[in-house]
């Protein structure tokens, strides 16, 4: 099969990550766009794992600290991400509660877990699932930024609800921590190189 459909690496070629031009692996700069050429993303696994771990650690303060503080008539009420979801459920906004819960809890946790799994699978994953794992990677890449909803909601409420002494909403430190989680896990997904999974597949085939 590898004779019929060659990979770039098997022909000594590399595909520019930015403009997709096929050049010799010995090339340093892409002649078409000027980007640095790497046959595979540099230190992909190490970088992805380091970013993943930082994101995982940051996810703890993002959930424990308040994301939003409401000052109403001299009284301060702090709410966390999950606390905000429970409050929405109590108020009967089930649809909105589900959106926030999916974006702030399910998506980031699933994304982190799946990226750990993909990193592990590069060396030890079952070869027959490589196509499915590639599909998982594409879903992770697409879904990452949707976690940012809650941070945007806080930013909008802070800007919108600023009624002198009556009612003021302030952002809590978890907003910054959670934005960090989303950005770091997006960079982690970008650092992961799915071609590493196929490279191992090919050494098994031969």
């Amino acid at each position: 099969m590898s004779n019929l459909q060659p990979t770039a690496a098997s022909r000594g070629l590399a595909c520019c990550h930015l403009c997709l031009k096929l050049v010799s692996q010995a090339t340093h700069r892409c002649p078409r766009c000027g980007s640095t050429i790497h046959s595979r993303k540099a230190n992909s696994l190490e970088r992805t794992l380091a970013l993943l771990m930082t994101a995982t650690i940051l996810y703890i303060p993002a959930n424990l600290l308040p994301i939003m503080i409401t000052d109403q008539l001299g009284q301060s009420i702090e709410s966390t991400i999950v606390g905000g979801v429970i409050l929405l459920l109590d108020m009967g906004s089930i649809a909105i509660a589900l959106v926030i819960f999916a974006a702030s809890v399910i998506i980031p946790l699933t994304k982190l877990a799946l990226l750990y799994y993909l990193c592990w699978s590069v060396r030890r994953g079952p070869p027959e699932t490589v196509r499915q794992r590639t599909a998982i990677y594409r879903v992770i890449e697409f879904i990452g930024k949707w976690s940012m909803i809650d941070v945007f909601v806080v930013a909008i409420l802070v800007a919108l609800i600023n009624l002198s002494n009556l009612l003021v909403i302030r952002p809590g430190p978890a907003a910054l921590a959670f934005a960090g989680v989303v950005i770091l896990s997006m960079v982690a997904a970008e650092s992961f190189d799915p071609r590493l999974m196929w490279d191992r597949q090919e050494t098994i085939d031969e």
């Binding site: 459909q5 990979t7 022909r11 799915p194």
Partner: peptide, 11 residues
């Protein structure tokens, strides 16, 4: 003009 698949490197 060849390009390689960004996910699996096939040309």
């Amino acid at each position: 003009d060849g390009l390689a698949c960004r996910s699996c490197d096939l040309i």
